[in-house]
Each structure stands twice: as structure tokens, then as C-alpha cells.
Nucleic acid binder design. Structure first.
Lengths: 182, 182
DNA sequence: TTGAAAACTGGCCGATCGGTCAGTCAAGAT
DNA sequence: ATCTTGACTGACCGATCGGCCAGTTTTCAA
């Protein structure tokens, strides 16, 4: 028991992996526990053996990206405002590209996620990240930052149609135009 | 029978009105026919008496905005490219503000709408509108136009928090920065 | 080898969904 | 007074959902 049982981790990981694909392809609400179980090669009961419920599966799918966002917010917190903005823009694009699948999932649960207490930290981090990206307290700049994030979320969809590099280039141009950092 | 029966139109209109509110507040999938019926003060069977099914209710909600978009696309079609772009930007913002409730609804059904044949025309018009807003065949400009539309869609949410004028101003600035028309 | 813990599953539950249908009811025409 | 028709509804249907539980199979330390 020094290491976690390999079988447990393998099954858990496969469930999360397949859930990610299904959430991305059809959305969270349109994906049933049975769909996830079938894709993962186990029974629905097994999914509920490893996770307390459907929201817990979602949380596991989002977790790596959420951790990266939390880390980014913490890093930006101890920087002067201008540098924090630059860091937020740069790293946020990187994160969006790296976790583009998760971003895609996030898109159709934004309305739902805000009333799930288990995602409160992620929502709060998202708000703070928006503040850093805005670079000032000007309401217009804050709205433009939100505008930029919404646009970026939309661009991460249809994953197969664009390479990571193309996506990164596009987001970089768009954010710098919007936030006047070019 | 020279005019349509007043009772019929009154009930139909109330169903559409309440459906719009509910779709906007909770999304299309999360709103049941029973919810709509209760809000409209009639039975679920009555909703299905007036509309062939749930997608038909959605179509009725989207119809006025869809008609305006179709008209805009037709108008832009017979203009030189630069003028078509200016018209598309200007009018699209107006339409988004005027139909911000519909835009809000549209947000969470973008993935679903593409596989419903009854909305093929609306999807096609949206694509053509994107082309006009891009102003050129440059793939980057097209992507930026899509980026702009996605951002704008996101900004139309949380309707109560911003006045129409504020929303119009924000979208105008954002689109002109993104598309380099300022 | 064995026994207990971990991993897993089939079958079931209550709830809710979109949708159907037979029939009620008021109103206008004859 | 009777009939027709459009508007409307309660009751019901099959399907599917998330979740639960009793019980089986696998794994592995002693």
C-alpha cells in the first residue's frame, strides 16, 4: 500500500479520460453515466464506485486545468499590476491551448457550474484572472477582458480543425488587440 | 376567419414569451415543456397542441432574430466588400442588443443547433455574416471575426447587469479593436 | 492456501423527460 | 335546440436519467 493500487488508478484514469472525450463531444448534460461507463469499458455502477456522482466525474475532468489556473492566480498575485497583466495574458493562452479539451467542456457548463459549490474555487479564480488580464480597475477594461475570455473559450471548440500553434497565434493576436497590448 | 382566432394567437404568444424567459434563465435543455406550460398558465398538452414539439418552441423563440439576421445578410450581399463589413459590424451589434435575450438563449444551444435541420438557414446565415464581418478571405481575419462573435455572445449574458447603451458601446469598441476598424 | 479487503457488476428504484390520445368544454352556425 | 369545430386538458406511455445495493469476482498479504 505504499503506492495506490494500480487497478484503482488505471480504472479511475480511464473513466476520466473517456468522460473528457464525451463531455467535449456532446456536452456535460447530454452525456450519461452509462455513456461514460461503456466508453471506459466498465459498468455504470463502477463509475459510481470510483466517484460519488456525476459532478464528481466532472470535477476530476476539470481538476488539472483548475489546479493550473489556481497556480497562475497565485503567481500573478505577487507581481506589480503591469507585469501581472502580461503574465496573465501569456500564461492564460498557454493554459487554454494545453487544456483546450477542458476549455471546450467548460463552455457548456458555465451557467451550471456557478451553482455547484464544489466549483466555487475555480469560479473565484476565473474572476481574479479576469481582473489581472484587465490590467486596471476601469470597468471598460474589465469588460474587454471578459470579452476576450469569452472569445477565447469559443475558439477552443472544434479541436480537430486547428493546430495548437495556430490556436496560440490567433489567441495572442486577439487578446493583444482587445487589451491594447500589441 | 378573416383574422386568426385571437385566443389562439394570445396563447401561442404567451407560450413563446415564457419559453424565452426560461430558456434564457436556465438554458434550453434544462427547461422542460412542463416548466413552459406552468409559466404560461396552461397545460403541457396545450403547448404541444400549439407546437409540434420542443424544437418547434425553440424555433418560434428564435424566429424574429433569425429573420433580422437573414435580412442583414441579404442587404450585405449587394454591397462592396468594405461597405458590407461596416454594415455587418454596425447592424450586428444592433441586432445583438435588440435581441440580447435570444442571443443569450443561442449561447447554450450552439452545439445542438447545428444538427437540427430546422435551423440550417440560421446557421448558414451566421456563417455568411461572419464572412462579411471578416472583410477579407484572410483566414486570420475570419478567425478574428469568429472570435469577436463569440465574445459578443458571451457579453449578452446576465442581461440585467448592463444597459443596452453600455452593451452597445462595449461591443462597438471590442469589435473595432479586434477587426482593426477603429 | 486461504481469507479478508478491494474492485466490480446486474438489477432495481423513483423521478422526470418529451410526447400521445381520448375526451371535455365553450362558442358560433344552422 | 342541435351540431360542429377549435381550444384545451388529465391521464398515461415508453424511454432514460442518476443513483443505490446486495452480491460476485479478483487480488493479494499472511
Amino acid at each position: 500500500m505504499a503506492v495506490t493500487t494500480p487497478a484503482r488508478e488505471r480504472t479511475r484514469h480511464e473513466i476520466v479520460r473517456q468522460a473528457m472525450n464525451l463531455f467535449q463531444a456532446g456536452g456535460y448534460n447530454a452525456t450519461s453515466l452509462q455513456d461514460i461507463a461503456t466508453a471506459a469499458g466498465c459498468s455504470k455502477a463502477t463509475v459510481l464506485y470510483h466517484f460519488s456522482g456525476k459532478p464528481a466525474v466532472l470535477a476530476a475532468v476539470l481538476e488539472p486545468a483548475a489546479a493550473d489556473v489556481a497556480e497562475l492566480v497565485k503567481a500573478a498575485a505577487q507581481l506589480p499590476r503591469a507585469e501581472a497583466q502580461e503574465l496573465a495574458i501569456q500564461r492564460f493562452i498557454d493554459l487554454a491551448v494545453e487544456h483546450r479539451g477542458v476549455v471546450d467542456v467548460l463552455q457548456d457548463i458555465l451557467a451550471v457550474i456557478e451553482q455547484m459549490p464544489e466549483f466555487g474555487q475555480l469560479v473565484a479564480d476565473g474572476m481574479r484572472l479576469t481582473d489581472y488580464m484587465a490590467g486596471s480597475d476601469d470597468p471598460l477594461e474589465r469588460d474587454l477582458a471578459k470579452f476576450a475570455i469569452n472569445g477565447l473559450l469559443g475558439e477552443c471548440r472544434h479541436s480537430g480543425e486547428r493546430t495548437d500553434d495556430d490556436l496560440r497565434r490567433l489567441c495572442d493576436i486577439a487578446l493583444r488587440r482587445l487589451l491594447r497590448r500589441a
